[in-house]
């Protein structure tokens, strides 16, 4: 597939570190957009703050780099103002799960037609390695020099419970399935959430005995468990594993469609 037409070529090479998984997540998103066959002029890519949020700068669509944690709030406004637009939010584990966690659950609850891709590299990379709500227990970070004592969120279970129409988790190592989750997420009318497990060799890997990008990919490979297999495993066996696959795939009515229907009912004197 020809990716080049979707890049802002003059902005490349990008600023991400050598071996950072974010580049692979971004190309997987672009492959998903290409498959969806959308008019690039109708695509809006919105991000917050963090390494992941640099991605829209390299993508030749309508792009918006907003404030920390609030990308979904901006995206909600865009989608409501013009429901025809295809709105994608790119966020990270810090941006989306910590400061932006509240926006995430309410966008799920409304089932508004926004596609959220969360780049989960388990760390605040841009600010040099503080632990995030997704950092595994025991991991070392600048703010957990003796090991993280907080349990991480399982955002796929959370978004599923909060009513998202489509929820999936994939890894950079398993690139083809990750691309297929993007394709499926983008084909949905309602809210879609895709969590992409990415690698931060600079601020997560080096502190946690994963000395190279390849070692981090091997870690993803070794620790991933397909959701179907995970269903037969005990919680203790799943400790520290990455459960991958499709968590939710449903067809509930999308929010802006419901909103427009209400308006036409009121205008038609039905209410």
């Amino acid at each position: 597939m020809e990716l080049e037409k979707y890049f802002r070529e003059n902005k490349l090479p990008h600023i991400w570190c050598p071996g950072c998984g974010h580049g692979t997540v971004m190309s997987s998103i672009i492959r998903g957009i290409d498959k969806a066959g959308w008019d690039p002029n109708k695509v809006v890519v919105v991000s917050g703050i963090g390494c992941s949020s640099r991605a829209p700068g390299y993508m030749d669509f309508n792009t918006l780099h907003t404030v920390h944690g609030r990308a979904i709030a901006f995206a909600t406004g865009i989608k409501l103002a013009n429901p025809e637009l295809k709105v994608i939010v790119l966020t990270g584990d810090g941006d989306g799960a910590a400061i932006g966690g509240n926006h995430l659950i309410h966008a799920c609850r409304r089932n508004i037609g926004i596609k959220v891709v969360l780049f989960n590299n388990y760390i605040y990379g841009m600010t040099s390695g503080q632990y995030s709500p997704m950092t595994p227990e025991g991991s070392l970070a600048t703010t957990s020099p003796y090991g993280n004592i907080e349990p991480p969120f399982d955002l796929c279970e959370l978004t599923k419970s909060a009513n998202a129409n489509f929820v999936a988790r994939g890894t950079v190592y398993h690139t083809r399935p990750l691309i297929s989750y993007m394709e499926k997420a983008f084909a949905k009318d309602g809210f879609s959430y895709v969590e992409a497990i990415s690698q931060c060799p600079t601020y997560y890997g080096r502190r946690n005995r994963l000395k190279s990008p390849v070692e981090m990919l091997e870690w993803q490979k070794k620790n991933s468990v397909d959701i179907k297999k995970a269903a037969d495993m005990e919680p203790e066996e799943l400790q520290g594993k990455i459960v991958t696959g499709i968590f939710a795939d449903r067809e509930k009515e999308e929010y802006t469609a419901r909103y427009d229907r209400l308006i036409s009912e009121i205008q038609g004197g039905k209410k």
């Binding site: 974010h22 580049g23 950079v172 083809r176």
Partner: peptide, 11 residues
């Protein structure tokens, strides 16, 4: 295609 799909730098 495995190299192209995984390359984080589109290189």
């Amino acid at each position: 295609d495995l190299c192209e799909l995984r390359c984080p730098d589109y290189a």
